[in-house]
Amino acid sequence: MIGDITLGQYYPGNSVVHKADPRVKIIMSLLLMVIVFLTDNLLSLSLALVFSILAVYASKVPLSYAFKGLKPVMIIILFTVVLNVFFSDGTPWFTIWKLTVTYEGVMRAIRTALRITVLITGSSLVTLTTTPLLLTDGIEKLLNPLKKIKVPVHEIAMMMSIALRFIPVLMEETQKIIKAQTARGADFDTGNIFQKAKSFIPVLVPLFISAFRRADDLATAMESRCYRGGENRTRMKQLRMTKIDLVVSGVFVLGLILMMIPDFLF
């Protein structure tokens, strides 16, 4: 279950999408999200989905792998779909038992599902094709102007990078602790919601303690490797815009314009 989360996991590859500058990828995916949220046009949204699928295809990340990121949010999607289908006002379409399904409700449900799907696919494609360090580098560079108003941009980027680094470590640890406490007779499945929450204390306390220990260890290790903040730091991999970035941006902008056309026409 926990192993299914692909968000923040890098999928090694050598595709155009992998090679593109992280800044380009971040900005483009942000633009995609903005459009997906602004438009209400079904055709636009469908085009956005087609476009994201094409992007996944270009990245050579298996489609099933890219969509794996959807699994954890499946419940949210289903929930909103159900809510929209059964509890929207509008022209009644048909009735199941006591619930009336409206035409508007179905449309809204489809739109919401499309939106979330594009949102997750788009953002996980960025993390799947960019190593976390490049990603945080990109974010750092993009946020650089904020340094002028004393925002600790480097520190924020470093924190994100470390958080990503420790996701798999802490997940593995959680599974281990759950197993061990289960073996001692802990029961995580029965009881009401409060009892269930309480039953996780034997997992959460050791997990937090371990996270703090790891944080302490890591800080010491970083210090002993001469880390002293972002100043005078160099990077092995310099971010440099290349022809690939021009092409990728071009294709993307074209795609985005294409998506917006139906919105303007209808």
Partner: peptide, 24 residues
């Protein structure tokens, strides 16, 4: 586990020299 900073092996190895300001 608690001393590897980078998310990719080579990026971690680069961490020290990066801190020292060595040219890319």
């Amino acid at each position: 586990d608690n001393q590897i900073v980078g998310n990719v092996v080579e990026e971690d190895v680069a961490f020290g020299p990066e801190n020292l300001g060595v040219p890319p």
